Amino acid sequence: MSARDRARRELGQNFLIDRSAARRLVDLLDPSPVPIVELGAGRGAITRALVHTGREITAVELDRHWAAELRANCPQVRVIRCDMLDFRFPDTPYAVVGNLPFSITTAMTRRLLGTAGWSEAILLVQWDVARKRAGGGTMLNAQWAPWYELRLCGRVPARSFRPVPAVDGGVLKIRRRPQPLVPSDELRQYQRFVEAVFTGPGRGLAEIVRKVTGRRLRNLPALPKNLTAEGWAHLYTEVT
């Protein structure tokens, strides 16, 4: 790497250089005319692929150098130079595509899940994180499962990035459910319930639920991580 590239790396950036991988990400978008917000545009590999969709593109990039490069090379794209964690998302419907810096993957994912307006998000993250999110079984997944579907859509080899990271990337597609499994105005109450179950005392799910809620329920799976999205919604409904 040059000295300039080393400076870029300090922001936690792993630039995607594989054009075919960039196209695969873009091809995962549902057919729709809604604008696209790209997070962590970097050198513009995904940005250039997005331009071919003909949609309105807003690229978010923190690094001053790469933001200037994007403005020069992609004049049809609106470039916003800021930290993606601070970016003010549109009030109108949109889709999200992003190569997330590995160091803020969880923080940015949480922020997205708590943000209204977008219909789908195609995220390039660490392979293990993508597999974990799509596989379910965690408290974070359970807390948001009634509102979102998460799917693993492929692996991107580490050699597809510069600098080359220590791990492969994974493509995670998140879609907002058209009909949530739990009423949206009960989100905070539902999430507190999930946290209480995941952190509650007991040797199995039935015992945990009994100690947390006072209800004796049968036909529950062995552990909280074994519940599906529909299972969590049903359990919440039963105890409330």
Rank of each mutant, 00 (worst) to 15 (best):
N73M: 12
I122E: 01
I46L: 10
A145S: 15
Y94K: 09
K225R: 14
I46F: 06
I122D: 01
C74D: 02
A121D: 06
M108A: 15
L112A: 11
V212K: 05
P178N: 06
V167A: 13
W232S: 04
D86N: 13
A68Y: 04
E207I: 11
Q76L: 14
L16N: 14
L235A: 02
R81Y: 01
D86C: 14
R218C: 04
T53K: 03
L220I: 07
R218A: 10
L29C: 05
T105E: 11
R192V: 08
L28R: 01
R8K: 08
E238L: 14
A166D: 08
R88D: 13
H234K: 12
W118F: 15
A166I: 02
L152R: 12
P201I: 00
L39I: 14
V97M: 05
V96P: 04
T53R: 01
R55K: 03
R81G: 10
A222H: 12
E149C: 13
G137W: 06
A95F: 05
D86R: 14
T213M: 09
P165Q: 04
M1T: 10
V77W: 02
V96L: 03
D63G: 05
A95I: 00
V77G: 00
P90M: 03
G169E: 00
N99Q: 10
L85E: 05
A107C: 02
P33F: 00
R203N: 07
R81M: 03
E38A: 02
F198G: 09
I17S: 09
R81T: 04
R133F: 00
L25A: 05
A130W: 09
R6Y: 08
R111A: 13
T53C: 09
G44K: 08
R210I: 00
L62T: 01
G137N: 11
W147Y: 09
A45V: 06
F161W: 02
L172S: 07
A158G: 10
V60F: 07
V239I: 06
